[in-house]
């Protein structure tokens, strides 16, 4: 009887812990999973590596991450269930110092087919080589926006401040 209670207790504890695994990914209010990957790493960077700056009522999230080596790629995937409408998003990477757009893509859709996009960041940001070239360093903002019909009126849903030290 005692062992039955022990098993039950362990099961309850495990069930209550399971949502923590989900926390290892950024998931926006719209159900878009955002993952950053280091070079030669199959696992996404853990959520613990980020500093959460803010979240507002609309679901907007701002995170910050500082790394020594540039991040290899960013992966965005829709975790919608079926029968939801395709939603258009854009991703913009801006160099904070020069205020120049480094990378931009405005036709991401998530929804019916729950698409996954994998975008290389290296060497557009930083350099693939280990040699510490000056163009490895810098501060960037990765912004994920919901595209509305009105240009320049995009709804920011997520920002990652990304610094290569």
């Amino acid at each position: 009887m005692k062992s039955t209670y022990s098993i039950l207790l362990i099961t309850v504890i495990l069930m209550s812990l399971s949502p923590i695994t989900v926390l290892s990914d950024f998931v926006t209010e719209d159900g878009i999973k955002v993952q950053l990957f280091k070079q030669k790493s199959k696992k996404p960077i853990s959520l613990k590596s980020y500093t959460k700056n803010s979240t507002d009522e609309s679901g907007f999230q701002e995170y910050e991450i500082k790394v020594n080596e540039p991040i290899e790629k960013i992966v965005l995937s829709g975790i919608f269930e079926d029968n939801l409408e395709d939603l258009p998003y854009s991703i913009t990477v801006t160099n904070v110092l020069t205020q120049k757009v480094v990378l931009f893509k405005d036709t991401l859709t998530f929804g019916y087919d729950s698409r996954t996009y994998s975008f290389p960041l290296i060497p557009w940001i930083g350099n693939s080589t280990k040699i510490p070239y000056t163009d490895n360093k810098g501060e960037y903002i990765i912004s994920i926006d919901k595209v509305t019909t009105e240009r320049y009126n995009e709804d920011k849903i997520m920002i990652i401040k990304y610094t290569i030290e």
Binding site: K100, V101, V102, K105, P123, Y133, D135
Partner: peptide, 10 residues
């Protein structure tokens, strides 16, 4: 402008 890269040392 949708993509830009400045290579300064290599």
């Amino acid at each position: 402008l949708i993509m830009s890269k400045h290579i300064q040392s290599f």
